[in-house]
Design a protein around this nucleic acid. Structure first.
Lengths: 340, 340
DNA sequence: CTGAAAGCGCTTACAG
DNA sequence: CTGAAAGCGCTTACAG
């Protein structure tokens, strides 16, 4: 059962392939009658253009690539959803790859996407990524690329981000406003820009409030997991009994910490207040519910695709692309892990 | 900056395109010397075959399509991860589409994937899907398709599933064994096979234990959300004060119910015991932690791709494909929402 | 308004 | 061992 081709239609109708092609695409230089005839037959035969041939001819596939550090992740999966839904609206399909926070994998996957000739690429960088040649190489080939969430400041492509520094400042200020005197920070890994910015926001808030910044209160770790949250909660209890507030880099770790503190009989928020980051769904279901920074994942995905789409269109028209930084708003969601 | 083609290499080397192509593919009928020369030049020029041309020639794209009801979902995102990681190992890329539990969207997306000529399709059906012509049509075209989790018994393709009936039986039996006398069931939507099977497992367990099955204790709802869990928890308290156990179709709804019961001062598990389904990550973090059925999402994704891959290979060799049903093991995870 | 022809970049059956 | 040629199915510049 071979698929129907233009040739099949042209033979049945006794006209040329050229005319069939034009008729199907609604070109004006085909008679109304021919056009109607062609369209009708195409319909009844359920003709579908061979995408492979179209791709080869037009040098575009209406497919984009997406590289993301982790899929089983509330924030990132929301971003994916935003990207896919927006892409579908514009007739684009999305190939998804997961870097597992590994630079090597990220690089290999980027290569793979390029060799598959996707029209453009959306990427959120792995924690392990410190060198960006694999990204700039692609930009140099003229392939549109948009970064989101985990970006590199130094790379001159479009980006969709939040103001991590400001959001972290707000989170820390909230701890201070609700009476915390000694505030720790679960910072996460060293490299990624948003770890850095969240840390800087935390530090700035302390300084602006005349509180001394104590490096020993900043906990660094590579894996942002529930278990890490439990572990550092225990560390706090043994190393820094005077800590009465923690600003945690991400909700999942904060939830691990809450679970451990609950287990140890620490009263949250009275003994220790906690603010997370991202507003994962879980944050509202845990006891006590987690005060956190709401980070608009779905929106971010939508915006990232929209920007890529703009660049795809600009490229087709051979227009110059000026990189754009799109910053989305965040807000503090007050719940029960901080005092009111 | 045009990409390098076979022609570029052949011209630089003064040999034919045919020979270059063969040399690159390691065909034996090329002299060692020529092969080495070609490979070296290809390397230095960073030659990448034009995937569009290869696709057209070979009529395959090494790309598969995946249609899933929802992405922001712990179980499904685990499945996606399993699929992608396995596909990557075998050199396949995955295009992901989300049906939002809608039959119309699912149908449209299936069409889209076919017209993009993906090599095969992986699908978990939408709740709204009651007719399967869109699926069988594709099978009739000889395109391999594998269903997972939310399947249709009537469709004769390969499937990766769990034994929902048995798992639900185990869950209900556990409630009975720990002393529950009147057990409700949050069933979810009517159509999907796994809702049906979980309900049947629940019913069977009651009957086998000499407990009367009471239809008024079975709650049906379309959206499997946290909010629905809260709502039906309230309903139970007002409609059936004698209920002392609930078997819930999925963890998310169970967690909503727990949250509402906590709020109303109902003691879990003493007043009401709850068993969920799926073992979402959240289930271990909530208070009380949720007893549930562990459903291996990552594994399911891996198996689904593996089966599709087998069928892809069989198709290439023009071998007949015999549909296979792959059943994965589940187990009860006892936590604190049921008595011990 | 219609169509013959070229070409996208590859692969492969075939001839030498 | 090498290469000319056909062909995958489409699109589009060009001629009539």
């Amino acid at each position: 059962m071979k698929p129907i081709t233009l040739k099949d239609i042209s033979e049945k109708l006794g006209i040329s392939v050229t005319t069939v092609s034009k008729a199907l695409k609604g070109y004006p230089d085909v008679s109304k009658k021919t056009r109607a005839l062609v369209k009708e037959l195409a319909e009844t035969l359920n003709y579908k253009p061979n995408a492979f041939a179209v791709n080869l001819r037009t040098e575009e596939s209406k497919t984009i690539g997406l590289i993301i550090p982790e899929i089983v992740h509330h924030f990132f999966s929301s971003v994916i959803k935003g990207i896919i839904s927006q892409a579908e609206k514009k007739g684009y399909l999305v190939i998804i790859l997961q870097s597992n926070e590994s630079y090597d994998l990220e690089k290999k996957q980027l290569d793979l996407l390029v060799s598959k000739r996707v029209d453009g690429i959306l990427i959120s960088l792995a924690n392990g990524t410190a060198d960006f040649k694999h990204i700039t190489d692609i930009m140099d080939q003229g392939k549109p690329i948009v970064m989101f969430d985990k970006i590199a400041k130094i790379v001159k492509c479009s980006k969709v981000i939040i103001d991590d520094r400001k959001a972290a400042y707000t989170a820390t200020q909230h701890l201070i406003d609700t009476g915390c005197k000694r505030i720790a920070h679960f910072r996460g890994p060293l490299l990624p820009q948003n770890s850095i910015d969240r840390f800087l926001g935390y530090k700035k808030a302390l300084e602006d409030n005349g509180m001394t910044y104590d490096p020993s209160l900043v906990y660094i770790f590579d894996d942002m997991t529930f278990e890490v949250g439990e572990m550092f909660a225990r560390k706090i209890l043994s190393e820094h009994t005077d800590v009465d507030g923690i600003f945690v880099n991400t909700d999942l770790v904060a939830i691990g910490a809450i679970t451990e503190f609950n287990r140890q009989g620490v009263n949250i928020p009275k003994d220790i207040s906690i603010v997370g980051f991202s507003n994962w769904f879980m944050s509202s279901a845990i006891t006590p519910s987690l005060t956190t920074i709401n980070q608009p994942g779905f929106e971010m995905g939508k915006m990232a695709f929209k920007q890529l789409y703009r660049e795809l269109k600009a490229k087709k028209k051979k227009k110059q692309i000026t990189p754009k930084i799109i910053e989305l708003e965040t807000n503090l969601v007050q719940r029960n892990s901080t005092r009111s």
